[in-house]
Amino acid sequence: MSAEAANGEEAPVRVTEVAASEALSLLEGEGLDTDVAGLRLFVQQGGCAGLSYGMRFDDEPEPDDAVTEHHGLRIFVDPASQKYIGGSTLDYEAGLQAAGFHVENPNVVSECGCGESFRT
């Protein structure tokens, strides 16, 4: 089942229930209104492979953002980032050595050894 953007198109990213739950908990811990605020997922220049993912909480979306809701979490993606992460899934992984958000991106043709940057 895929989420839809506000304009009826398929959502640029999917979010697992675990990732949404973790992000909502963090949003609430920051005192943000989860009905308006959300998690911004973006792509920026950097890293040894050329591009890297970025995430931050925003109080509200920008006018040209794709805005979707997944398991109660609002996701904001700007138009420039959409072309790099379209079809991706945001997940949360917890392990013995580390825990954090991870983007599974079908557009990636190569990643650096640490998995922090990529090339499409």
Rank of each mutant, 00 (worst) to 15 (best):
L41S: 06
E93V: 15
T34N: 11
E28F: 00
H71K: 02
V77L: 05
G95K: 15
D33C: 04
D59L: 09
V77Y: 08
D35P: 03
D33A: 14
M55V: 01
Y53K: 02
F57K: 04
L90D: 07
S88E: 07
G29Y: 05
V36N: 13
D91W: 11
P79Y: 03
A37T: 08
P63H: 01
D58T: 04
A49H: 04
L96W: 15
M55P: 02
E62G: 05
G54K: 09
G86Q: 06
S81P: 09
V43A: 01
E93W: 12
S88N: 00
L27Q: 10
S88A: 12
E30P: 00
I75Q: 01
G86C: 00
I85C: 08
D35L: 14
G46Y: 06
C48D: 12
D35V: 12
G50P: 01
G72I: 04
L26D: 07
Q82Y: 05
Y53G: 04
G50M: 00
L90Q: 09
A37L: 08
G29L: 03
V43S: 09
Q44I: 13
T34R: 14
D59T: 11
V36Q: 13
I85N: 06
L41W: 10
Q45N: 10
Q45E: 13
F42C: 11
V36T: 15
D58H: 06
L32P: 11
L96F: 15
G54H: 09
G50N: 00
D65H: 01
R74N: 08
D64I: 04
S25F: 12
G38L: 12
V43W: 06
P61D: 08
L26H: 05
D35F: 13
Y92Q: 09
C48A: 11
G29V: 01
R56W: 06
L73H: 03
D58G: 03
L32I: 10
L73S: 06
S81L: 10
V67L: 05
P79V: 02
D58R: 08
L24K: 13
P63A: 02
L27S: 07
D64K: 04
Q45R: 13
F57V: 03
L41Q: 12
L32M: 14
H70K: 01
P61A: 05
E69I: 03
G95S: 14
H71W: 02
S88V: 09
G54L: 03
Y53N: 09
T68D: 05
P61L: 14
S25Y: 12
G38E: 08
H71P: 01
V67N: 00
T34A: 15
